[in-house]
Amino acid sequence: MADPRKPRPAFAPWDRREIPGLFDVDESARRVGIYKWIEMRLFETLGGWVATVPELDVKLVLGRHCYHHAWHAELWDKRLPELREMNTTRLTVPANDAMNEFMESIREPEAPELTIEKLVGVYRVLIPRKIAAYTYHLNATSRITDAPTQRSLGFILQDEHDDWTEGEMLLQSLIETEDEVDRASRRQVALEKIVLRAGGITGPGTLGDAPDSSGAQVEGATV
């Protein structure tokens, strides 16, 4: 029988979590504020679109996903005060003007015949970008000091992957002609150009700095 008084290490041998991470409190809070702003604009957009899409299956999926993103916004809203940001609206902002323009463009389509344009914006541009940014945050921040953020990121990423899959399947079932392939592509290109100008959904450095040509260590390369 194990001796209950025998000293054991605080970290089990298989627990390889380390400190520090790439983000300090302020950077984590900045990103979380931006995430909340994006999730809010997204759930509002999906909620608004429900009445404008005639396809019944799409209508119901948007209603369901609307709540997923609202819940994400709620998780981020609760995390902000824990990151020393008591005025949660102060950081609930877009990363920059281009990002604001990007979200305005995402939510622009309204007519009932524009379901492809609506879904491409969310499921082929925004959500992949969110998955990338959230995954980067998950990998880059300290698994010890920023564990609450990581826990939320884990739940949220699960939703994002599931929703991405569902949205992409809807799109593939809606795109039936070459003209519709072109429509989807044009829409994706237009939005990608805006988010490129924004430097990613949290602004320049969304996925860390790009490696320089000398091959030197850069942010995000190691912890």
Partner: peptide, 17 residues
């Protein structure tokens, strides 16, 4: 309030199903 409405969206979506 908006969060409540988003939750209601999901509920109503299930009700349609």
């Amino acid at each position: 309030l908006k969060l409540d409405m988003a939750r209601q969206c999901w509920d109503e979506s299930r009700h349609v199903e």
